[in-house]
Every structure is written in structure tokens, then in C-alpha cells.
Amino acid sequence: MILVTAATAPVGREIVDQLTAAGHPVRALTRDAENTGLPATTDIVVGDLADPESLAIAMRGVSTVFLLAVVPGFAPAFLAAAKEAGVRRIVFQSSGSVDDTAAEQPHAVAAFHHDIERQLRESGLEWTMLRLELSAANPIQWAFDVPGQVRAGDVVRGPYAQAAGAPIHPADFAAIAVEALTDDTHAGRTYPVTGPQSLTHAEQIALLAEALDRPLRYEELPVEQARTAMGPHAPADVLLDDWARHLDRPAPITDTIETITGRPGRTYAQWAADYRGDFLSR
């Protein structure tokens, strides 16, 4: 049995779908079991990383776990439950901001993930770290609610029109995770993960406009205005600093998708076409 945390988030859902399609038994940890939209064969457990009792239930009979963590302080109880249940390996969605050579991590996001990585390494369990580069997490979309902006009109407002990112399609990240969850050769490995293209914010919105057949345009906000316009859960300083660093250089690109899965990564245009429905009026 493979346990997927955050199973109804875009990546978690893709992992569940791909594991199920490959014939693996899957358990999904989610806060709400109603209307999950997950495959009918999925064993759904209601719980939360902050709830040790639910973790103990979710871990029973599980061999490997995909871990997406946003809850501070969860790791000791999570790892204790995993060891008690006989879990062999954790595949962790970490951050590409983690710096293995630094005495102090560059910011809070890196420090949070670095600490979880440390605890995983010290746990005695097998582990695989999938370090998703910040620029690959498609942050302009969720930090500035681009779907909501597009449903409201043809102007997408955000900072740094020429800042480059390398967004990864959730299905590609999921495919890497599935390989790591099902193939023991990935134990003890750390993989940097990005999408296959370096594209500026303006270029991303132009490709989205093509997919939607809409005259969308990107309007650059001053930095301080952008800071206040960001969603409440977005790490504003971290994102703005990262975008500023990529104003005059391409975003980092890795070959991890193709190396691990044997297939090239999906383009941003493919992502825009696949998620077209998110931008349509409701």
C-alpha cells in the first residue's frame, strides 16, 4: 500500500491517478472525504499531518509514503507513526531552495524543508528528496490568483513581467514521484526538479492567452503594490527575491523529468491546455 498525503491537491491527485492506473494499491490522506474525485479503488482516510491519531490509522499496512508538508512541527509524530507501522521509505516534496553547503538556510521556506530533510535522514527510514525549484512551482498562478484574474477580465497583474520561471506540469512531477515510490533504486537520492522551459511571466500569460483564445496581457505591478496584492499564504519576500534574481537570467532547468521517467517534460502550452477549465467562468 502506498500512502499519498495532500491527495486532493493537484500533484497529489495526479500521483493517486497514476499509481492507480499502474495497478498499485493507494491510500489517500485528506481532510475531507466528500467529493474527492479520486479513483473508486482509492482507500480514503480522513486526517491531517497535525493529527497523530489519524497518521497512525493512515500508516497501517503502508510501505511507502509521498509526503507534502506545510504543517510546522509535524515531523516527529509523523516519523514515529511511520516507523511504528513499518513504513520503508518516504518520498518527500522538498524545496530547491535548500542549500546543503550553507551554515544557515537562505530563508524560511528553505529552512523549513531543510529541517524535515534532516529528520528524514536521521530517522533510519529510506528516503528520496524531490527538490522542486521555487520557479518551477508556478508561483505566479497561486500567489496572484491568476485563474480568478482571468475569469474577471483580460488583464493579469503581477510583479516583474520579465522574471523567468520554469513551471512544471503536475503530471510530470507526479510521474517522478511515482517512480520514486515504486522503484527502490531511488532510495537515498536527492533530485532537483523543474519544468522543461524557462519562460518569463509575460511569456507564460501569452501562452495562456493562446490556449484560451483570449487577448490576455500581463500588466506589471510595482514591487510594493505586488507585495500587498499577494495571497495571504504566499511567502511574499521569498517569491519577490527569487523573481528579482531571474530578471536578467533564465530560470534553472534540470533534466530530471526525462532522466527519471524516460519522457520529455510537458510544455507550458500543454499545461495551459490541460488546465483550461480552471480559467473559465463559473
Rank of each mutant, 00 (worst) to 15 (best):
A82M: 02
E84A: 14
A211F: 02
E224V: 08
V238I: 10
T267Q: 01
E224C: 09
T194V: 07
V150Q: 09
W271I: 11
A56F: 02
V156A: 06
L67I: 11
A251P: 02
P25H: 10
A40C: 01
P222H: 06
A143G: 05
E122N: 11
D213I: 07
I257L: 09
V155I: 15
D213K: 08
Q149N: 13
L79F: 15
A163F: 04
V155E: 09
G148D: 05
I253F: 05
G265F: 01
L55I: 07
R121K: 10
P170T: 15
A269M: 10
D242H: 13
L216H: 12
W127V: 09
L3E: 02
D237M: 06
T261G: 08
I260H: 01
T128W: 09
L67G: 06
P252T: 05
R60G: 03
A33Q: 12
V223S: 12
R276P: 07
I90A: 09
G47S: 08
A136I: 15
A163M: 12
D172Q: 12
A33S: 11
V178T: 13
Q149M: 10
Y191V: 03
A273P: 00
A50Y: 10
A180Y: 00
T64C: 11
P106A: 04
A273M: 06
W271P: 06
R13K: 11
D115K: 11
A82D: 09
H201F: 13
Q18T: 04
D172Y: 09
L247H: 09
A50V: 01
T30G: 01
D17P: 01
E133H: 14
G148H: 11
G153N: 12
P147L: 14
I253G: 05
A143F: 07
P147Y: 06
V70K: 12
A137R: 03
P147Q: 08
T259N: 14
L130W: 00
L207W: 05
T5Y: 07
P215A: 10
G37A: 10
D43T: 05
T41E: 15
E220I: 05
L67M: 13
A236R: 14
G96T: 02
D32Q: 12
A174Q: 09
T259C: 09
E122R: 15
W243L: 08
A161C: 03
W243C: 01
A21W: 06
